[in-house]
């Protein structure tokens, strides 16, 4: 359904070209859940915004295709993209506290997508299109109920600041679901929330995937969440995808030294003797990236070859791909 090919984009900043997305290939089939994991600042959010054609200023797409239902989104007109946004592809943003507009009521914000995409445009009658408004409101209340907002009839009239963070995130999910999208882009939908709410939201997303059959791209920096929830996982590092495969492949048999490092740095409850091992070093500055492997300075298994040229994607079998010479 969605196939991103060789996508590259960069921000033209004073420090130079910040390559936030670098030759990314990704595909999501209908009803599939794709996880993107990676450290903060590796380009996960920007990748999602690219799909919607909403790269923030001063970002520019350098190359690539974003095929959605057989058509390249990068070639679409503004009007065509507006019709896709919020309807065929919806996004749930990272930080619920700042993503709802503080001056509009929750219900109005949920209704808005339905109205602009004409979900109930056939409903006629009443003064000032009141029949259509009622239909929209009924659906909004239904959605709020579905995402687990208690007493939705009254909550419909609340302002965002009257909601807790978890409720705000649910409202955002309701907005995302309002037009029954075929693809849902979820940008760390649980990061801002505490653990119990996190589990509820994830369960909700799972339900959406199963009942609505929506494809989902779930961005997270939590490998545990990705493992539990996704069919496929892509590991991102400094704007590049360094490993991709089915969840079992990546989790049980991680190939890239970065993925291995990520997995070792997760605290485990079960075995006390396993120490947490953080990956040494820090995330590189995207403005200073060259063609070589960006993980080189932090990699225990690095050798000279890694610096010589751009590392290609190698096939490790059964669709499991790795950007590392160890598997070349």
């Amino acid at each position: 359904m969605l196939e991103i090919k060789n996508l590259a984009m960069a921000f033209e900043t004073e420090r130079g070209l910040v390559r936030a997305v670098n030759k990314v290939d990704l595909s999501v089939a209908e009803g599939e859940v794709m996880g993107i994991v990676g450290e903060s600042g590796c380009g996960k959010s920007v990748t999602l915004l690219n799909i919607l054609g909403l790269v923030p200023h001063p970002g520019k797409v350098l190359s690539g295709e974003i095929m959605f239902q057989g058509e390249d989104l990068l070639k679409k007109s503004k009007k065509e993209m507006r019709d896709i946004r919020g309807k065929d592809i919806a996004m749930i943003f990272q930080d619920p506290m700042t993503t709802l507009n503080p001056v509009f009521r929750i219900g109005e914000q949920i209704r808005e997508s339905m109205r602009i995409h004409g979900l109930f445009k056939d409903v006629k009658g009443g003064f000032f299109k009141s029949a259509r408004k009622h239909a929209e409101k009924d659906r909004a209340v239904e959605l709020m109920e579905e995402v687990g907002i208690p007493s939705p009839e009254t909550r419909y009239h609340n302002f965002p600041h009257e909601f807790s963070g978890g409720m705000q995130q649910r409202a955002l999910i309701a907005i995302g679901l309002s037009c029954k999208p075929k693809l849902l882009l979820a940008d760390e939908p649980t990061t801002a929330l505490d653990v119990t709410i996190q589990a509820q939201i994830l369960a909700l997303m799972q339900k959406i995937n199963q009942e609505h059959g929506a494809g989902i791209i779930l961005v997270t920096h939590d490998l545990g969440v990705a493992a539990e929830f996704c069919h496929k996982i892509a590991v991102m590092y400094a704007g590049r995808i360094v490993e991709q495969g089915r969840t079992e492949q990546v989790m049980d048999n991680p190939h890239h030294p970065y993925t291995q490092g990520l997995l070792r740095s997760i605290p485990k409850m079960s075995s006390k003797k396993d120490r947490i091992e953080p990956i040494p070093g820090g995330v590189p500055d995207l403005a200073e990236l060259k063609e070589e492997c960006a993980f080189y300075p932090r990699c225990a298994k690095a050798h000279d070859k890694c610096l010589s040229q751009e590392v290609p994607m190698f096939d490790a079998g059964e669709g499991h791909t790795v950007r590392c010479y160890l598997y070349g």
Partner: peptide, 26 residues
Amino acid sequence: RQDYVTLARAKGLREFIVIVKHALRN
């Protein structure tokens, strides 16, 4: 620069509405 403006765009609103309704009110 706020996220809610990006959300308004992500809903598929026209830029004029994004600016006059969602941004200007704030």
